[in-house]
Nucleic acid binder design. Structure first.
Lengths: 138, 138
DNA sequence: CTTGACCCTGTACTGTGGTACGGAGTTTAG
DNA sequence: CTAAACTCCGTACCACAGTACAGGGTCAAG
Protein backbone atom coordinates (compact mmCIF):
# COMPACT_ATOMS: atom_id res chain seq x y z
CA UNK A 1 0.00 0.00 0.00
CA UNK A 2 3.03 2.22 -0.21
CA UNK A 3 2.14 5.35 -2.14
CA UNK A 4 3.74 5.24 -5.54
CA UNK A 5 4.11 7.95 -8.14
CA UNK A 6 3.38 7.00 -11.71
CA UNK A 7 7.12 6.80 -12.36
CA UNK A 8 7.68 4.31 -9.53
CA UNK A 9 4.74 2.20 -10.62
CA UNK A 10 6.00 2.18 -14.19
CA UNK A 11 9.49 1.15 -13.11
CA UNK A 12 8.25 -1.62 -10.82
CA UNK A 13 6.02 -3.00 -13.53
CA UNK A 14 8.72 -2.58 -16.20
CA UNK A 15 6.66 -0.38 -18.48
CA UNK A 16 6.84 3.25 -19.54
CA UNK A 17 5.03 6.06 -17.76
CA UNK A 18 3.03 6.72 -20.90
CA UNK A 19 1.84 3.14 -20.92
CA UNK A 20 0.32 3.56 -17.47
CA UNK A 21 -1.57 6.63 -18.58
CA UNK A 22 -2.63 4.80 -21.73
CA UNK A 23 -4.07 1.94 -19.66
CA UNK A 24 -5.83 4.49 -17.52
CA UNK A 25 -7.48 6.04 -20.57
CA UNK A 26 -8.54 2.56 -21.64
CA UNK A 27 -10.06 1.88 -18.23
CA UNK A 28 -7.71 -0.98 -17.36
CA UNK A 29 -6.46 0.98 -14.39
CA UNK A 30 -8.72 3.39 -12.60
CA UNK A 31 -7.33 6.85 -12.19
CA UNK A 32 -6.27 7.14 -8.57
CA UNK A 33 -7.69 10.09 -6.66
CA UNK A 34 -5.32 12.97 -7.02
CA UNK A 35 -5.06 15.50 -4.17
CA UNK A 36 -7.62 17.58 -6.13
CA UNK A 37 -6.49 20.30 -8.50
CA UNK A 38 -2.98 19.86 -9.70
CA UNK A 39 -1.52 17.07 -7.61
CA UNK A 40 0.08 13.82 -8.76
CA UNK A 41 -1.44 10.38 -9.21
CA UNK A 42 -0.79 8.17 -6.21
CA UNK A 43 -0.88 4.40 -6.63
CA UNK A 44 -1.01 1.59 -4.14
CA UNK A 45 1.54 -1.15 -4.65
CA UNK A 46 -1.28 -3.52 -5.56
CA UNK A 47 -1.41 -1.78 -8.92
CA UNK A 48 1.99 -3.21 -9.74
CA UNK A 49 0.50 -6.69 -9.91
CA UNK A 50 -2.33 -5.41 -12.03
CA UNK A 51 0.01 -3.95 -14.62
CA UNK A 52 2.20 -7.05 -14.60
CA UNK A 53 -0.87 -9.19 -15.19
CA UNK A 54 -1.80 -7.04 -18.17
CA UNK A 55 1.64 -7.51 -19.74
CA UNK A 56 1.64 -11.19 -19.01
CA UNK A 57 -1.81 -11.74 -20.46
CA UNK A 58 -0.82 -9.83 -23.58
CA UNK A 59 2.05 -12.24 -24.12
CA UNK A 60 -0.52 -15.00 -24.05
CA UNK A 61 -2.44 -13.47 -26.92
CA UNK A 62 -5.19 -11.63 -25.08
CA UNK A 63 -6.15 -8.16 -26.31
CA UNK A 64 -6.53 -5.28 -23.89
CA UNK A 65 -10.29 -5.60 -24.25
CA UNK A 66 -10.15 -9.25 -23.26
CA UNK A 67 -7.80 -8.48 -20.40
CA UNK A 68 -10.26 -5.91 -19.18
CA UNK A 69 -12.91 -8.63 -19.18
CA UNK A 70 -10.63 -10.95 -17.26
CA UNK A 71 -9.89 -8.29 -14.67
CA UNK A 72 -13.57 -7.49 -14.32
CA UNK A 73 -14.35 -11.05 -13.31
CA UNK A 74 -15.20 -10.72 -9.70
CA UNK A 75 -17.11 -13.14 -7.56
CA UNK A 76 -18.98 -10.74 -5.36
CA UNK A 77 -20.80 -12.13 -2.31
CA UNK A 78 -23.20 -9.21 -2.37
CA UNK A 79 -24.44 -9.84 -5.88
CA UNK A 80 -25.81 -12.75 -7.79
CA UNK A 81 -23.00 -13.64 -10.14
CA UNK A 82 -24.39 -15.91 -12.79
CA UNK A 83 -22.99 -13.61 -15.42
CA UNK A 84 -19.49 -13.75 -13.97
CA UNK A 85 -19.71 -17.51 -13.79
CA UNK A 86 -20.62 -17.75 -17.48
CA UNK A 87 -17.88 -15.38 -18.58
CA UNK A 88 -15.27 -17.16 -16.51
CA UNK A 89 -16.31 -20.47 -18.02
CA UNK A 90 -16.03 -19.07 -21.51
CA UNK A 91 -12.58 -17.68 -20.80
CA UNK A 92 -11.57 -20.99 -19.30
CA UNK A 93 -12.47 -22.74 -22.53
CA UNK A 94 -10.36 -20.29 -24.49
CA UNK A 95 -7.46 -20.91 -22.14
CA UNK A 96 -7.81 -24.67 -22.49
CA UNK A 97 -7.68 -24.30 -26.27
CA UNK A 98 -4.55 -22.21 -26.04
CA UNK A 99 -2.94 -24.74 -23.75
CA UNK A 100 -3.71 -27.49 -26.22
CA UNK A 101 -2.17 -25.62 -29.13
CA UNK A 102 0.82 -24.54 -27.10
CA UNK A 103 1.50 -28.13 -26.09
CA UNK A 104 1.39 -29.07 -29.77
CA UNK A 105 3.88 -26.33 -30.60
CA UNK A 106 6.07 -27.47 -27.73
CA UNK A 107 6.19 -31.05 -28.92
CA UNK A 108 6.92 -29.89 -32.46
CA UNK A 109 9.83 -27.82 -31.18
CA UNK A 110 11.11 -30.76 -29.18
CA UNK A 111 10.88 -32.90 -32.26
CA UNK A 112 12.95 -30.41 -34.23
CA UNK A 113 15.50 -30.24 -31.45
CA UNK A 114 16.03 -33.97 -31.38
CA UNK A 115 15.97 -34.30 -35.17
CA UNK A 116 18.52 -31.52 -35.42
CA UNK A 117 21.46 -32.29 -33.13
CA UNK A 118 23.82 -29.56 -31.98
CA UNK A 119 26.70 -31.09 -33.84
CA UNK A 120 26.82 -32.97 -37.08
CA UNK A 121 23.98 -33.51 -39.46
CA UNK A 122 20.31 -34.09 -38.90
CA UNK A 123 18.71 -37.48 -39.33
CA UNK A 124 16.30 -36.09 -41.90
CA UNK A 125 14.57 -32.96 -43.01
CA UNK A 126 12.06 -31.65 -40.51
CA UNK A 127 10.04 -28.44 -40.36
CA UNK A 128 7.78 -27.31 -37.57
CA UNK A 129 4.74 -27.97 -39.74
CA UNK A 130 5.86 -31.51 -40.43
CA UNK A 131 6.55 -31.98 -36.75
CA UNK A 132 3.08 -30.71 -35.91
CA UNK A 133 1.40 -32.92 -38.44
CA UNK A 134 3.27 -36.00 -37.36
CA UNK A 135 0.61 -37.17 -34.97
CA UNK A 136 2.95 -39.55 -33.18
CA UNK A 137 4.45 -36.64 -31.36
CA UNK A 138 3.75 -35.80 -27.71
CA UNK B 1 -1.14 -30.99 -53.93
CA UNK B 2 -4.41 -29.99 -55.55
CA UNK B 3 -3.94 -26.68 -57.30
CA UNK B 4 -5.69 -23.95 -55.41
CA UNK B 5 -6.45 -20.42 -56.43
CA UNK B 6 -5.86 -17.75 -53.84
CA UNK B 7 -9.59 -17.63 -53.16
CA UNK B 8 -9.79 -21.36 -52.42
CA UNK B 9 -6.74 -21.21 -50.19
CA UNK B 10 -8.21 -18.26 -48.32
CA UNK B 11 -11.52 -20.02 -47.81
CA UNK B 12 -9.94 -23.27 -46.65
CA UNK B 13 -7.76 -21.41 -44.18
CA UNK B 14 -10.64 -19.17 -43.07
CA UNK B 15 -8.92 -15.90 -43.91
CA UNK B 16 -9.47 -13.21 -46.53
CA UNK B 17 -7.79 -13.17 -49.91
CA UNK B 18 -6.07 -9.94 -48.96
CA UNK B 19 -4.56 -11.62 -45.93
CA UNK B 20 -2.88 -14.23 -48.11
CA UNK B 21 -1.33 -11.55 -50.27
CA UNK B 22 -0.32 -9.65 -47.14
CA UNK B 23 1.48 -12.73 -45.79
CA UNK B 24 3.16 -13.12 -49.13
CA UNK B 25 4.46 -9.55 -48.99
CA UNK B 26 5.75 -10.29 -45.49
CA UNK B 27 7.52 -13.40 -46.70
CA UNK B 28 5.48 -15.82 -44.57
CA UNK B 29 4.26 -17.52 -47.71
CA UNK B 30 6.40 -17.65 -50.79
CA UNK B 31 4.77 -16.40 -53.93
CA UNK B 32 3.90 -19.47 -55.97
CA UNK B 33 5.22 -19.50 -59.52
CA UNK B 34 2.60 -17.99 -61.75
CA UNK B 35 2.29 -19.11 -65.37
CA UNK B 36 4.52 -16.11 -66.24
CA UNK B 37 2.99 -12.82 -67.34
CA UNK B 38 -0.57 -12.44 -66.25
CA UNK B 39 -1.58 -15.80 -64.79
CA UNK B 40 -2.95 -16.54 -61.34
CA UNK B 41 -1.18 -17.77 -58.23
CA UNK B 42 -1.48 -21.51 -57.80
CA UNK B 43 -1.08 -23.02 -54.34
CA UNK B 44 -0.57 -26.55 -53.18
CA UNK B 45 -2.92 -27.73 -50.47
CA UNK B 46 0.02 -27.87 -48.04
CA UNK B 47 -0.20 -24.08 -47.88
CA UNK B 48 -3.53 -24.40 -46.08
CA UNK B 49 -1.77 -25.86 -43.06
CA UNK B 50 0.83 -23.14 -43.20
CA UNK B 51 -1.78 -20.37 -43.06
CA UNK B 52 -3.70 -22.14 -40.31
CA UNK B 53 -0.50 -22.42 -38.30
CA UNK B 54 0.08 -18.70 -38.69
CA UNK B 55 -3.40 -17.89 -37.34
CA UNK B 56 -3.04 -20.37 -34.54
CA UNK B 57 0.36 -19.09 -33.47
CA UNK B 58 -0.96 -15.54 -33.50
CA UNK B 59 -3.64 -16.54 -31.03
CA UNK B 60 -0.85 -17.76 -28.80
CA UNK B 61 0.77 -14.35 -28.72
CA UNK B 62 3.45 -14.77 -31.38
CA UNK B 63 4.06 -11.89 -33.78
CA UNK B 64 4.31 -12.48 -37.52
CA UNK B 65 8.07 -11.99 -37.22
CA UNK B 66 8.28 -14.69 -34.57
CA UNK B 67 6.04 -16.97 -36.59
CA UNK B 68 8.35 -16.50 -39.53
CA UNK B 69 11.20 -17.61 -37.29
CA UNK B 70 9.23 -20.66 -36.19
CA UNK B 71 8.41 -21.60 -39.76
CA UNK B 72 12.03 -21.14 -40.77
CA UNK B 73 13.14 -23.74 -38.26
CA UNK B 74 14.15 -26.58 -40.42
CA UNK B 75 16.40 -29.43 -39.51
CA UNK B 76 18.18 -29.84 -42.78
CA UNK B 77 20.27 -32.98 -43.23
CA UNK B 78 22.37 -31.26 -45.87
CA UNK B 79 23.54 -28.47 -43.61
CA UNK B 80 25.02 -28.16 -40.19
CA UNK B 81 22.14 -26.92 -38.09
CA UNK B 82 23.59 -25.67 -34.84
CA UNK B 83 21.83 -22.38 -35.42
CA UNK B 84 18.44 -24.01 -35.87
CA UNK B 85 19.00 -26.04 -32.73
CA UNK B 86 19.72 -22.91 -30.71
CA UNK B 87 16.72 -21.04 -32.06
CA UNK B 88 14.40 -23.95 -31.44
CA UNK B 89 15.66 -24.22 -27.88
CA UNK B 90 15.06 -20.53 -27.31
CA UNK B 91 11.53 -20.77 -28.70
CA UNK B 92 10.90 -23.82 -26.57
CA UNK B 93 11.78 -21.84 -23.46
CA UNK B 94 9.36 -19.12 -24.48
CA UNK B 95 6.66 -21.69 -24.98
CA UNK B 96 7.33 -23.26 -21.59
CA UNK B 97 6.97 -19.83 -19.99
CA UNK B 98 3.68 -19.27 -21.76
CA UNK B 99 2.43 -22.65 -20.66
CA UNK B 100 3.31 -21.83 -17.09
CA UNK B 101 1.46 -18.53 -17.15
CA UNK B 102 -1.51 -20.00 -18.94
CA UNK B 103 -1.81 -22.72 -16.33
CA UNK B 104 -1.79 -20.03 -13.66
CA UNK B 105 -4.55 -18.14 -15.47
CA UNK B 106 -6.49 -21.37 -15.82
CA UNK B 107 -6.35 -22.16 -12.14
CA UNK B 108 -7.34 -18.59 -11.31
CA UNK B 109 -10.36 -18.91 -13.58
CA UNK B 110 -11.28 -22.22 -11.99
CA UNK B 111 -10.99 -20.63 -8.61
CA UNK B 112 -13.37 -17.86 -9.64
CA UNK B 113 -15.80 -20.39 -11.06
CA UNK B 114 -15.98 -22.37 -7.84
CA UNK B 115 -16.06 -19.27 -5.65
CA UNK B 116 -18.87 -17.89 -7.75
CA UNK B 117 -21.61 -20.50 -8.10
CA UNK B 118 -24.13 -20.33 -10.88
CA UNK B 119 -26.95 -19.73 -8.44
CA UNK B 120 -26.99 -17.92 -5.18
CA UNK B 121 -24.23 -15.89 -3.69
CA UNK B 122 -20.50 -16.33 -3.69
CA UNK B 123 -18.61 -17.58 -0.68
CA UNK B 124 -16.45 -14.49 -0.65
CA UNK B 125 -15.09 -11.80 -2.86
CA UNK B 126 -12.63 -13.05 -5.43
CA UNK B 127 -10.92 -11.40 -8.35
CA UNK B 128 -8.65 -13.01 -10.89
CA UNK B 129 -5.67 -11.19 -9.40
CA UNK B 130 -6.48 -12.48 -5.93
CA UNK B 131 -6.95 -15.95 -7.34
CA UNK B 132 -3.57 -15.72 -9.06
CA UNK B 133 -1.81 -14.50 -5.96
CA UNK B 134 -3.36 -17.12 -3.74
CA UNK B 135 -0.56 -19.62 -4.08
CA UNK B 136 -2.69 -22.46 -2.77
CA UNK B 137 -4.41 -22.65 -6.11
CA UNK B 138 -3.89 -25.48 -8.60
C1' DC C 1 14.36 30.60 -4.10
C1' DT C 2 16.17 28.52 -7.86
C1' DT C 3 17.35 24.38 -10.44
C1' DG C 4 16.58 19.78 -11.89
C1' DA C 5 13.82 15.85 -11.77
C1' DC C 6 9.63 14.59 -11.91
C1' DC C 7 4.51 15.08 -13.12
C1' DC C 8 0.25 17.15 -15.68
C1' DT C 9 -2.95 17.27 -20.10
C1' DG C 10 -3.35 17.03 -24.79
C1' DT C 11 -2.21 15.94 -29.37
C1' DA C 12 0.63 13.81 -32.92
C1' DC C 13 3.20 10.11 -34.57
C1' DT C 14 4.71 5.11 -35.01
C1' DG C 15 4.62 -0.02 -36.05
C1' DT C 16 1.85 -4.12 -36.65
C1' DG C 17 -1.59 -6.62 -38.87
C1' DG C 18 -4.62 -6.38 -41.63
C1' DT C 19 -8.97 -4.47 -44.91
C1' DA C 20 -10.88 -1.89 -48.76
C1' DC C 21 -10.79 -0.16 -53.23
C1' DG C 22 -9.72 1.31 -58.06
C1' DG C 23 -8.78 -0.01 -62.54
C1' DA C 24 -7.23 -3.33 -64.84
C1' DG C 25 -6.76 -8.62 -66.91
C1' DT C 26 -8.38 -13.72 -66.87
C1' DT C 27 -11.27 -17.66 -66.60
C1' DT C 28 -15.31 -20.26 -66.93
C1' DA C 29 -20.34 -21.21 -67.29
C1' DG C 30 -24.04 -20.60 -70.18
C1' DC D 1 -18.76 -14.91 -77.26
C1' DT D 2 -20.20 -12.58 -73.56
C1' DA D 3 -21.12 -11.83 -68.68
C1' DA D 4 -20.15 -13.02 -64.02
C1' DA D 5 -16.87 -14.24 -61.01
C1' DC D 6 -12.53 -14.31 -59.99
C1' DT D 7 -7.63 -12.52 -59.99
C1' DC D 8 -3.86 -9.05 -60.63
C1' DC D 9 -1.07 -4.92 -58.60
C1' DG D 10 -0.89 -0.82 -56.14
C1' DT D 11 -2.29 2.37 -52.90
C1' DA D 12 -5.10 4.07 -49.22
C1' DC D 13 -7.22 3.35 -45.11
C1' DC D 14 -8.24 1.16 -40.46
C1' DA D 15 -7.86 -0.45 -35.36
C1' DC D 16 -4.83 -1.58 -31.76
C1' DA D 17 -1.20 -0.65 -28.65
C1' DG D 18 1.66 2.11 -27.59
C1' DT D 19 5.49 6.25 -27.92
C1' DA D 20 6.89 10.94 -28.34
C1' DC D 21 6.55 15.60 -27.84
C1' DA D 22 4.94 20.45 -26.40
C1' DG D 23 3.96 23.51 -23.08
C1' DG D 24 3.08 23.79 -18.93
C1' DG D 25 2.88 22.72 -13.26
C1' DT D 26 5.03 20.67 -8.84
C1' DC D 27 8.31 19.22 -5.55
C1' DA D 28 12.62 18.52 -2.97
C1' DA D 29 17.62 19.55 -2.44
C1' DG D 30 20.90 22.71 -1.87
Amino acid sequence: MSNLTIGHLAKKASVGVETIRFYERKGLIQQPPKPSSGGYRSYSSAEVERVRFIRSAQQLGFSLREIDELLSLEADPDADCQDVHAKAKHKLEEVEQKLKRLRAVRSALKSIITTCPKKGRAAGRCTILQALNTKNNR
